[in-house]
Design a protein around this nucleic acid. Structure first.
Lengths: 161, 161
DNA sequence: CCCAGTCTTCAGAAATTTCTGAACGTTCGC
DNA sequence: GCGAACGTTCAGAAATTTCTGAAGACTGGG
């Protein structure tokens, strides 16, 4: 492992935030998520985030709301602290893929309405293919996630530093 | 199957476009893609699209470029026509999931740099878990797509109208 | 070679999104 | 209860994205 400083950590965090923006995430939400990932504290408060990211309390409030809605962070009650703490959820990533179901579901419903709205012809063929593909995906994701969990728990701790 | 008119088809197309926007796609690209999906022509020209969507030629040009870059449509040479035709690619959806690799790859690289930038501690654990999850996903997608193709080709034509 | 038809590019207008800062709640210690 | 510490909300400013329309480029027929 390389010896690195706080600057490298910040840069790496911003770099990840950028990649997440490229993947369709909103800027501030991505920066907040990266901050959670890269922090060595177990939980962060809104104030911590505002300082770390150099933005207003208002922005942080909105960003936290978004990331929480994605199911990636959760409120965490810390004894002896009045402030509200947030931490990454243990199963953040696998949960994310369940949440994405609802997004694909919306697409799938629209496609299904399309299938009903067109008569026989090329459009019908395209729409049913699309429907079948996404239906298959939707069905397979839970098993996929489960296999990952099993595989990783079998190897737990092997590569920890 | 319900008897439906052109208005229903348009509405269903716009509805799908909306769902795709919700999934992170850009507005005009989503509308263009929906137009391709719902058209009973095998191919469309930029002019066809401009008329169908009621937007300028400039907007259409940009939208086509985006959808083509996603690998969902391709140029199609039509004998006896000077205009440039575009059609949906046969394996548009499965290809899409290969292209998404590059997006996930970007995230994964950023995470990997993060792993190098942090010392032992909570951040290290979070980052390696994230890396492992997305690596697993990346590895599994091709097999998943292949299984879908096999299953569908086995049933080819069964449910065609 | 020139023209008509078609597509692309690009500067700027319009719409939308994002961020801030100030005002307003809430909660807890005293 | 009061006051201080925090967090949230919201109107508006700032930045960004998106769309248009006009100008330019390419292509093939005449």
């Amino acid at each position: 492992m390389t010896v690195t400083g706080e600057t490298d950590r910040r840069e790496a965090a911003e770099s990840l935030a950028l990649a997440l923006v490229g993947a369709g995430m909103q800027r501030m939400a991505a920066r907040a998520l990266a901050a959670f990932l890269f922090s060595d504290k177990e939980s962060l408060t809104a104030g911590d985030l505002a300082e770390e990211l150099g933005v207003s309390a208002g922005s942080v409030s909105g960003a936290i709301k978004m990331v929480a809605q994605m199911g990636l962070i959760e409120r965490s009650f810390v004894a002896g602290s009045r402030r509200e703490h947030f931490r990454m959820r243990d199963n953040a990533w696998t949960t994310l893929y369940s949440r994405q179901h609802s997004i694909i579901d919306d697409v799938l419903s629209a496609v299904e309405r399309g299938v009903d709205a067109v008569g026989a012809g090329p459009a019908y063929g395209r729409l049913t293919y699309m429907r079948d593909f996404y239906t298959y995906l939707l069905n397979e994701v839970p098993a996929l996630v489960e296999r990952f969990e099993e595989q990783r728990s079998g190897r737990r701790g092997e590569s920890r530093p």
